[in-house]
Design a protein around this nucleic acid. Structure first.
Lengths: 248, 248
DNA sequence: CAGTGGTCTAGACCACCAG
DNA sequence: TGGTGGTCTAGACCACTGA
C-alpha cells in the first residue's frame, strides 16, 4: 500500500508558512481522492528530502492533519490516511453562518433590543454584579422564510457600542462581535428539550405541546471574559444539532 | 503583571516527555491558582534558560496548553493565562462513564441482544451491505435507580467476539470496545428532540407526550471503519447534553 | 534487524506589537 | 526601538514495530 506524494509547489516568498502549504496540499490530495483512505504516506525523512524542507517542518504539516483527524501515525508503521467520514471537529459556529453556508437563506426579526438589569442567573453567567445593566436581544430567526428559532441573548455592558436593529437583521451576532474586535475563544453549551408554551408555539408557528430543542450558551473571549450569554429555543421539527467529535 | 514560574522539577530518566512534564506543571499551577487568570508567563527564551531546556521544547509545552484553551499567546505581547471557565473540549465520551464519574450510579437492563439483518439506514451508517447480519443491542440505562435513556446500538459483524448480557450490565459500550482492542477515533452526532410514543413513555416512566432528546451517533476507529451506530432517546426532564467548545 | 515516528537540541531570521 | 512569539533548519538519539 503505497502512494506518490507528487510534487508540491512551494512558495517561499508567500506569507503562508511552508508547513501550512504542505498541509493544505496534502489535505486537497486526500479530499480529491488522490490519496485514498488507507493510503500510506512516505516517511518524514524522504518527504523532507523530496520537498527540500527540514523534517520538523514536514512533521508539523502532518501533525496539523493528525489534529484534524485526517491522518493517523504509528511508530514503526508510518502515516496513513483515515477514512474521511468525519470532517471538522466542533467549531464555535453561529446559527446564521451555518444557515447561510448551507443556502438556507437566514433572516432575522428583532423582537427586542433593550437594556435590563441583570438577573441573578444572567449576572452569574456573564460574571457581572446582579442588577448591572446588560443588553438584551430577542430575535426570531427564519430559514427559507419559515420561523426556526427564538434567540435571546444577554451582553455585558460596554462590549460593543450599540447594535442597530438594521445591523442585526443583516448578519449573525458572532459576526458582529468579531467585527467589533472581540476574539471568540471558547463556549460552554447545554442542549436540552422541552415542550413549547402556547406563546412560544404561536411565535414559532408550531402546535401546542410541540417539542423544542433548547440551547444555553456562554461564550468567552481571549481573556476569559464572558462576552455573551444566550438562551435559545429551536423547533425540533425543523432543526437538530450536528456535532463532529475527535478523540483526544 | 508578572508571575514567577517557580522551579519545575524535571526527570530526564522518566519516559514522560520533558515538554509534557513542563505542560503538566504549568497546568497544575494554573488550576491551583498559583498562576491566576491574566497572569503573564515569562517569555520562551528565559523559561528555556531557567529550566535548562531548548526553546522548541518550551514552545511545545506551551502550545499544548494553548490547544487546551488554557493559555493565549500573542506576538509582541507574550503568553497569558486564560480564565479557566471552559475546561475540556468535547470528548468521545460514553454515557456510562459520564454518569459513573459524576457519582450517578449507572445501571443497565438489557432489553435485547441479538443479530439482525441490517436495514438500509443501518447499512449505510455502518458501511456494510444491506442485509448483512449485525449485532443489535437494546438497553435501558438507569441513573440513581431511575430510568434515564433507551440506548439502541448496531455493531458490524466480527468486531467483538460476543457480548454477554452480564458484561453489558457492568460497563459501558465504549469501555467494552476499547478493551476489545478497538481504538475509537471520531464520531458524528446528531442531537434532536421529539415527543415520546406511548410505549416509550411507559418504558421510561414518563407521561404521554413527554419531550425526549434524541441522539444518533456513528463512531469510527483509526482506519475510518464504523464500529458502532446508535439511536438513543433520553428523558428531557432528566438529561441534557453539555458541551465545551474551543475556537480553532 | 531495518524502518518508522517521537523527542530534543542550538542555533537563525522574521513579523508583529508596544513604548 | 526592543521584545515577543512564529517559523525554519540540520542535525542527534531513542522507542516502537514488523519481518
Amino acid at each position: 500500500m503505497w502512494s506518490t506524494p507528487g510534487s508540491i509547489p512551494l512558495d517561499r516568498t508567500s506569507p503562508v508558512p511552508l508547513y501550512f502549504q504542505v498541509a493544505q496540499h496534502l489535505e486537497r490530495a486526500i479530499e480529491s481522492g488522490e490519496l485514498p483512505p488507507g493510503a500510506q504516506l512516505e516517511n518524514e525523512v524522504q518527504l523532507a528530502e523530496q520537498l527540500g524542507l527540514s523534517r520538523p517542518t514536514i512533521r508539523r504539516a502532518m501533525q496539523y492533519l493528525v489534529d484534524r483527524g485526517m491522518l493517523v501515525r504509528r511508530r514503526g508503521i508510518g502515516t496513513q490516511v483515515v477514512q474521511a467520514k468525519v470532517k471538522r471537529p466542533v467549531e464555535l459556529s453561529s446559527l446564521w453562518d451555518d444557515l447561510a453556508s448551507s443556502g438556507q437563506q437566514p433572516a432575522t426579526t428583532v423582537l427586542a433590543n433593550t437594556a435590563e438589569q441583570a438577573s441573578a442567573e444572567v449576572a452569574r453567567q456573564l460574571g457581572v454584579a446582579e442588577g448591572t445593566p446588560v443588553t438584551v436581544l430577542d430575535r426570531l430567526r427564519f430559514a427559507r422564510g419559515e420561523p426556526l428559532a427564538r434567540l435571546r441573548n444577554y451582553l455585558p455592558p460596554g462590549l460593543v457600542p450599540g447594535l442597530a436593529d438594521e445591523t442585526l437583521q443583516r448578519q449573525g451576532l458572532y459576526q458582529l462581535l468579531r467585527s467589533g474586535g472581540v476574539t471568540l475563544h471558547a463556549a460552554a453549551q447545554t442542549i436540552g428539550a422541552r415542550v413549547a408554551t402556547p406563546a412560544e408555539a404561536r411565535l414559532l408557528g408550531e402546535t401546542r405541546g410541540a417539542p423544542l430543542l433548547t440551547m444555553d450558551r456562554t461564550t468567552y473571549d481571549d481573556r476569559g471574559r464572558a462576552v455573551e450569554y444566550g438562551r435559545h429555543i429551536y423547533r425540533a421539527s425543523r432543526y437538530s444539532f450536528e456535532l463532529a467529535l475527535l478523540a483526544r
